[in-house]
Computed example of a mutant assay.
Amino acid sequence: MVAITVELRNVEGTQAAMGWAGSHTIVVDRPEGKAGGQGLGFNGAQLLALALGGCFCNDLRYVAEEMGVLLGRIAVSVVLELEGSPQLAKSAEMTVLCEKQDGDGAERVIERAKEVCMVANSLGRGVAVSIEHAA
């Protein structure tokens, strides 16, 4: 089993948080005017949609390399639908354009990436989440 750890801390002088994994960072905040948000970074729903689309973009590259296919243009769009109070993700729709370097379609690459995409498959199957109070 592989475990990935990320850390988040408040950003001094704001009500935003800075998250990091290794040497990569990201700012998390609420929209300006909402619960002290200043719009300094992505909100949770945006991060969830980015995780889904970003993971799929990476998997297109992994799969293409395994298949010996050189990719050209990739364009991924994710629409995450939220509902309820508290808001929950109801559905996610991802639209994928992926072309080989010669401009031909890469349907086989897309289909294989669907099979192996960790975030898409994890969300589709449900992920156990626990939240515990730190001592």
Rank of each mutant, 00 (worst) to 15 (best):
V69M: 06
A3C: 07
H24Q: 11
A106Y: 05
D59F: 13
L80H: 04
G124I: 00
V78Y: 07
E65I: 09
G72L: 08
N121D: 11
A135K: 14
D59I: 10
E93L: 10
A16C: 04
T25H: 14
D102Q: 08
G13P: 03
R9P: 00
S91A: 13
A64G: 11
A92N: 07
I26H: 05
L60S: 13
D29V: 03
H24R: 12
M67L: 15
E32D: 06
Q87G: 09
V11T: 02
N10T: 07
D59S: 14
H24N: 11
H24Y: 09
T14M: 11
A89H: 01
Q38C: 01
V78P: 04
S85Q: 14
V76A: 08
G41V: 03
C55A: 02
A21V: 07
G19T: 01
G41H: 01
E7I: 07
A135V: 13
A128P: 07
S91W: 01
W20N: 12
A135R: 14
A17F: 07
G124V: 00
T95M: 07
V129L: 06
V6S: 08
Q101G: 00
G36M: 05
M94I: 04
G103D: 06
T5G: 00
A16W: 03
S77T: 14
G44W: 00
D104L: 08
R112K: 15
K114Y: 12
V109P: 06
P86M: 04
M67T: 12
A35T: 00
V127H: 05
M94S: 01
